[in-house]
Amino acid sequence: MKSFELFKTFFKIGAFTLGGGYAMLPLIEKEVVEKKGWIDEEEFLDLVALAQASPGPIAVNTAVFVGYRLMGIKGVLVSTLGSILPSFFIILIIASYFTEMKSSYIIERIFMGIRPAVAGMVLASVFRMGRNVILNFKKLVFVIVISISVWMYKITPIYIILLSILLGLYINFKRGKLI
């Protein structure tokens, strides 16, 4: 029963993630953290950190994390399959019925509405999670500096992840407190 629930949840996440990797974060937060309570807010951030540190789509990495947490290897198979099946079938249908892949004007209009909405939902997620993470002014500055370095200066996230792992190790080594 639990494996069916897991499959269903990730199928839903896979089917409604429109607009790229980060667009799925609000949906995962809603389904996995809020509705099911399978992981808490803090673990959710750990999950995103690991998903960024590992190659491949965030969708798959997330499915592996939650699946393994809940049901071990079997959970990994169930949730990964659930998250990729919707796009697999949709692309298969498109590939076999349309010789020319073109999106129509109607679809383009629909997505002109969805894309700004994705920005709004992801930003709302940041605000919600920020309440648990940004506990002092130093941390707020830290978060803003990180976001500007990626947004404005186009630094690849994996380097930033590696850098903060090194910082963490250094602090652990020094046993001091930086932030």
């Binding site: 920020g130 903060s164 792992i165 910082l167 963490g168 652990n172």
Partner: peptide, 17 residues
Amino acid sequence: IFKFLRPTVLGLILAAA
């Protein structure tokens, strides 16, 4: 490590937004 990673990841998601 995760103490650093959590605000880092929050920054990354903010950048994505």
